[in-house]
């Protein structure tokens, strides 16, 4: 009896560290806090998703790939990047599976594991936003769009919209800046900056 209860406190951690790394499925479940084994493939998520026509896998198919443990297929697909997190799927799922949280976790895993990304232009955009935040502490939209165009080309695409926005003074020429620049710089000593 006492031999069972008097385990040193560190033992479970030591065993866990020595054991096999958690499966892809367990990792996604743990990090997203979502129980997706409840899915019975009714496809309500895919039928409600406004962006499904721009996806390579439908949301229910992404979920199935995760269930099958197909790490590479999932983390390299376009779907997780086309998803903007509008939560239509999560609110329509009859089993209350939070698919948006699942997509969020898959994006994070894709970034962390440095896999080839299904829609690189979206990462380019996010990085441009972060560079703006690093410099000013706030988003300078004109700078972000110019930087994004510089990376992805396509200067003429959207020129009309850009000019309209400039004419309506919706794009500020000069950035607004946080005064405590040191605090912002300090925040940017982070995973994203160090992994670049």
């Amino acid at each position: 009896m006492s031999a069972l209860t008097l385990q040193p406190a560190s033992a479970p951690a030591a065993i866990a560290a020595a054991g096999p790394r958690p499966s892809f499925l367990e990792e996604v479940r743990e990090r997203s806090g979502t129980e997706f084994s409840l899915c019975y493939q009714c496809q309500a998520c895919a039928n409600g998703c406004p962006f499904v026509s721009a996806m390579d896998y439908r949301p229910n198919q992404v979920l199935r790939l995760v269930q099958f443990g197909m790490r590479e297929e999932v983390l390299q697909c376009k779907t997780i990047w086309v998803c903007v997190g509008c939560h239509t799927c999560s609110s329509q799922c009859p089993m209350a599976i939070d698919l948006a949280a699942l997509m969020d976790t898959l994006r994070l895993l894709a970034v962390e594991q440095g896999v080839p990304v299904g829609k690189p232009n979206i990462i380019d955009f996010h990085e441009e936003v972060l560079r703006s935040l690093e410099k000013y502490g706030r988003a300078h939209k004109l700078g972000i769009m110019l930087g994004y165009k510089r990376q992805t080309g396509g200067w003429l695409q959207d020129l009309d919209v850009g000019l309209k926005m400039l004419a309506k003074r919706k794009l500020e020429l000069f950035p607004s800046r946080v005064k405590a620049g040191g605090e912002i710089a300090d925040l940017f000593r982070c995973y994203w900056r160090e992994s670049r």
Binding site: R107, L108, V111, F125, H126, L130, A139, C190
Partner: peptide, 16 residues
């Protein structure tokens, strides 16, 4: 005040 981090920070770096 500074930017809330928005979806860009949320996607690229949770600590940030």
């Amino acid at each position: 005040w500074n930017c809330c981090g928005s979806s860009s920070a949320q996607t690229m770096c949770r600590n940030l």
